[in-house]
């Protein structure tokens, strides 16, 4: 019994010592590697964004930032890991629009309130593209054809119940009925119009840069309030008389909601600073995703708006 008592006492002492050792240095956050949870597998848009940012943040914050890919359940597996990690700022995760859309389909056990968004670092409208040899030269031709031949044109998208789907449903409601062909593997989606297997593809420009630069894709229509500075000749959906909800693809960095304010402030400042660096500017220019980072309440609000728009579509 005495032995056990001494053992327990020793245990408490040791525990205390570790806690103090770690707490003493916790004053100057960060002092050990910060884990960046990318919620999708290596090679995707979220992964490339996360790795690029991690690399810049390492110099901003002065600690190493290893990237951990936790793919699964439309990004919710990674978010669950983020949510259940200690809210001490040593775990940061990516939170992207696709995952927010999945919440509307009851995927995952995460809610917008579980996370504190540090900043929306990428946000981009999507386009409808055709292959270079398509019969459609302009958006008007396309829309006329779609109206006269409902259900004939096929559009490669990332799946049902996504913002791609919402856009196509909204168009169908206005008399432009096109068939959603879901391709969950991005590589297959990109080849679909090239091989002539679908007529169109719905995609953000950053993911298909190679096809835009080579001229294999022609953008016909942008789903946005204003024309894109990089594509000044591409008309907006509004100009063509379409009444759309504008759902940008966005990518953010987030931490668990309970993370202390000063840690959040430190991280937020670092992320904002990182987006001003030349390295990031070159990267976002390459992927057509440059924007002034949205932080704090505004960022949180943007995510809720997106969630509500998708959920509303699924309701009816």
């Amino acid at each position: 019994m005495r032995k056990l008592g001494r053992f327990a006492f020793g245990g408490v002492l040791v525990a205390g010592a570790f806690a103090m050792a770690n707490a003493a240095i916790a004053q100057d956050y960060p002092n050990r590697p910060i884990e960046l949870v990318v919620t999708f597998g290596p090679g995707g848009g979220a992964d490339v964004m996360g790795r690029q940012l991690a690399q810049i943040l390492e110099t901003e914050l002065g600690v190493s930032i290893p990237v951990t890919n936790v793919a699964g359940a439309s990004g919710n597996a990674g978010l669950t890991r983020l949510r259940t990690s200690p809210a001490d700022g040593y775990t940061v995760g990516t939170l992207i629009s696709l995952t927010v859309a999945s919440w509307a389909a009851d995927i995952g056990d995460n809610t917008p309130e579980d996370f504190r968004v540090l900043a929306i670092v990428q946000s981009t409208p999507s386009f409808l593209y055709v292959a270079a040899d398509s019969r459609f030269e302009t958006a008007e031709q396309l829309l006329d054809y779609a109206r006269d031949n409902p259900g004939e044109l096929t559009v490669a998208t990332s799946g049902y119940g996504t913002q791609d789907d919402v856009a196509l449903i909204t168009m169908a409601e206005q008399g432009f009925d096109m068939v959603n062909v879901p391709f969950s593997a991005p590589g297959e989606r990109y080849t679909a119009p090239l091989g002539g297997h679908t007529d169109l593809i719905y995609e953000e420009p950053g993911d298909v840069v190679q096809f835009l630069e080579s001229g294999e894709y022609r953008p016909l229509l942008i789903f946005s309030e204003a024309r894109h500075p990089e594509f000044p000749d591409v008309p907006t959906s509004g100009e063509l008389g379409l009444n759309m909800v504008y759902l940008n693809t966005f990518r953010t960095l987030a931490v668990p909601a309970a993370t202390p304010e000063d840690v959040v402030a430190r991280l937020e400042a670092a992320v904002v600073a990182a987006t001003q660096t030349d390295a990031w500017q070159a990267f976002c220019a390459q992927t057509y995703t440059c924007l002034e980072p949205v932080t704090g309440e505004a960022a949180q609000q943007e995510i809720l708006t997106f969630f509500d728009a998708i959920a509303a579509q699924l309701e009816d």
Partner: peptide, 21 residues
């Protein structure tokens, strides 16, 4: 390989961080 293997919870997390240092 920079893999984030489990560090445990509570005291064990503190221990793991100390040990990794």
């Amino acid at each position: 390989a920079l893999m984030p293997l489990n560090r445990g919870v509570g005291v064990f997390d503190d221990f793991s961080v100390w040990f990794l240092r």
